[in-house]
Design a protein around this nucleic acid. Structure first.
Lengths: 203, 203
DNA sequence: CCATTAATTCATCTGTTGATGAATTCGACC
DNA sequence: GGTCGAATTCATCAACAGATGAATTAATGG
């Protein structure tokens, strides 16, 4: 029967808390998860969470550990070849990132962006300042109105994120990166090359 | 100074509550809105809400008033012409529905589907049982593997819903139905006609 | 005009939430 | 080996959640 006080050994409790927080935030979203629940999952007293991280918002920020900068990977994917096939490479990059070790963080952000205005804003900024900017810089001189194009591309990618990682619809959820890139790639290619003056003109 | 008891006249308080609920649920999502807040917005005592609708879940269900059946409109759009242009007509139909009087209900459902598992399930069922089924019935003999195709179409439509109605990114949020249909249409057309055996084979 | 029923509010309960401060235990350092 | 600081828990708060039952007022039908 452990009473109170410090534990034996040197357990990395801080990291255990973060892991539990990431898992739960990703699975249920920010408001549906209580600090107590996270503490229970981490096998820790709730007060310890506040001791380490402060408020619940602070814990969330620590758990998602922004900024995750996908800029370089996107740029590399775009530079790996010409405009043809760029969509497939882009899609493959995205899915790889989301399937990778940052999965829980990213899903947590996406889920929370839908219900928490501050997170929604952060999402928008991340999209505009990293993704759109990177795309612009890399292929901005081969193509016009990159901002509009990037938003259409974003709409398709966001749809994949939702159906694959949040709603987990089949077959989206279980396709692998190659299949998705192959199937979605041409859509993105088209958004990169189609004429968009009539839309861009209205800013 | 009004104390308690019944009000004069015949105000449609029930509907005022539902309207406030729809607005708030659409704007903030289910868990972020309290019964008290809805009551305040409707200018009513919180107890009245429970009196009329029972639990908060019941209120939500009453507010979104399912099922909204988009089947007929989708079927009509598909039947209005051949396979070419079907994507544009489909997109136009969707955007018109979401921009129409059911806007708040639909946004409320979409927002809540991301954080509430029960709503997520309802969303999936609505998608499979209404949309996929309708598409299958109407063009199922012109095209194979409709289920897989419908899911790719769904991913693009869901992306539009998210960027346009939830995150409200520009220019998505302010384009009109025609422009969206024109731009997204070909994407959907492609998902309707591209080969998908390799994906469908894995079920 | 009286009785019934519907509409509305009040006061209140219970559970949960995020959060705090004091108390306890352990590790590390000199 | 005593001291100091870090780690951990306990008990507890105030705010707010959803919910309930009784009390009050108005409309309605006979």
């Amino acid at each position: 029967m452990k009473r109170s006080g410090r534990r034996s050994g040197k357990p990395d409790t801080k990291e255990e808390i973060l892991t539990a927080a990431r898992r739960l935030f990703a699975e249920h979203g920010f408001e549906s998860v209580s600090v107590r629940r996270i503490a229970a999952d981490a096998g820790v007293d709730p007060a310890l969470i506040h001791h380490y991280f402060g408020t619940k918002d602070d814990l969330f920020l620590a758990a998602i550990e922004l900024p995750i900068d996908p800029g370089p990977e996107i740029a590399a994917a775009l530079r790996a070849g010409g405009l043809e096939g760029a969509g497939g490479r882009l899609m493959h990059t995205f899915v790889s990132i989301w399937d990778g070790p940052h999965h829980d963080k990213l899903v947590a952000v996406a889920r929370t962006a839908v219900s928490k205005p501050a997170m929604s804003l952060m999402f928008r900024k991340l999209f505009e300042r990293r993704i759109v900017k990177t795309i612009s810089e890399v292929i901005g001189d081969e193509v016009d109105h990159v901002h509009v194009r990037a938003n259409f591309i974003g709409s398709q990618i966001f749809g994949i994120i939702m159906t694959r990682y949040i709603l987990k619809l089949e077959p989206m959820a279980s396709l692998d990166a190659e299949e998705l890139a192959e199937t979605i790639g041409p859509t993105i290619d088209r958004y990169l090359t189609m004429p968009v003056e009539h839309i861009a003109a209205r800013h």
